[in-house]
C-alpha cells in the first residue's frame, strides 16, 4: 500500500503499540490488561506496519517466524505451569519467589513468578498466531492478484 502518511505514522506508532502492549501485559494483574489484551495490541501494531511497509519488511523486523513465536509462547505457558507443579505442588499453581502478601499491608517485593511467565506465554502465542494468520492471508491475496495479472 502506498501511503506516505500511513508509512510515517506507522514508524512512530509501531514502537508505541509495542511498548504499550508490554505495559498492559505487565500491569494486567492489578489493573485492566493482561497477556491476551497485550498480545492483541502488539498484533495491531505489527499488522499496521505490515500494511504500511510490506509483509517482507514486517517479517524481517519480527526476525522469527510468527508460528515459531506462538510455539515459544505456548511453551512458556506450559513451563509456567510446570514451575507450579515443581515448586507449588500442582500444575499451574502460582509461584511468586520474590513476592508475598502481608495481611493489612498488601503485597511486598517483586511481582515476578510463574504466573507472569504464563501470561507472557499467552502474549507471545496471541502475537505469533494472529500475525501468522494475517501475514499468510495478505500473502495469499497478493500472490493471487499477481498470478491473475
Amino acid at each position: 500500500m502506498n501511503s506516505t502518511i500511513l508509512k510515517t505514522a506507522t514508524r512512530l506508532l509501531l514502537p508505541i503499540f509495542l511498548i504499550a502492549s508490554i505495559l498492559i501485559l505487565w500491569r494486567g494483574h492489578n489493573q485492566p490488561g493482561g497477556g491476551f489484551i497485550g498480545g492483541l495490541m502488539a498484533v495491531i501494531g505489527v499488522a499496521l506496519y505490515a500494511i504500511a511497509a510490506s509483509i517482507d519488511e514486517a517479517r524481517r523486523r519480527l526476525r522469527v517466524d510468527p508460528l515459531v513465536l506462538a510455539g515459544v509462547g505456548l511453551a512458556c505457558s506450559v513451563l509456567g505451569g510446570l514451575w507450579g507443579s515443581a515448586a507449588g505442588g500442582a500444575f499451574l499453581q502460582g509461584v511468586w519467589p520474590f513476592y508475598e502478601y502481608v495481611s493489612g499491608e498488601g503485597t511486598k517485593g517483586w511481582p515476578i513468578g510463574s504466573v507472569l511467565l504464563f501470561d507472557t506465554g499467552v502474549y507471545l502465542t496471541v502475537l505469533g498466531a494472529v500475525c501468522a494468520i494475517i501475514f499468510a492471508l495478505e500473502e495469499a491475496v497478493f500472490a493471487e492478484r499477481e498470478g491473475s495479472r
Binding site: H29, Q31, P32, G81, V115, F118, V122
Partner: peptide
C-alpha cells in the same frame, strides 16, 4: 493470587488450565 484485577487473576491463576 496477589492480583487486584479479578478477570486477569481468574484467567492466569484460578482457571489457568
Amino acid at each position: 493470587a496477589f492480583g487486584r484485577n479479578v478477570v486477569n487473576v481468574i484467567l492466569v491463576d484460578f482457571r489457568a488450565l
